[in-house]
Amino acid sequence: MNIMTIIGMALTTQGALFLLLGAIGIVRMPDMYTRMQAGTKATTLGAMSFILGIGFMEPAWLLKTILIVVFIALSNPISSHALARAAHRSGIFPLSRENIDLYKRDNQEDKS
């Protein structure tokens, strides 16, 4: 058991815990947008450090795991951005205690 394996195991454990945290966030949060916040952030870092940890445990695979990590870091925010915009356009508005929704206001001004 060398030092790379130990770093890899630590990264993998941390990644798995963040993935679990993302799943808990999706269940606990009160409305769609906040669920998306918890889901996107926690699962992105979770998957990144999990896969990088596997790469550290098997150094011959490191380059390819880095490729997957870069792809996840680029693609995950894009899909959540597309989903947030689609949800807002299809009429699901965020919960807001002080009623701050500038996007809705600007869209209504454009129409009138």
């Binding site: 990644g15 999706i26 889901g39 699962t43 979770g46 998957a47 596997i54 098997e58 995950n76 989903l83």
Partner: peptide
């Protein structure tokens, strides 16, 4: 609502990706 389900699906597919990478390590198949 439908977007809620899609968010859950997104998270599940990322967790499954991580799981597949771990299976590669367990079975030693590149």
């Amino acid at each position: 609502t439908a977007p809620d389900r899609v968010i859950a699906l997104d998270a599940m597919s990322i967790i499954l990706t991580a799981g597949l990478v771990m299976l590669a390590l367990v079975f030693q198949r590149f």
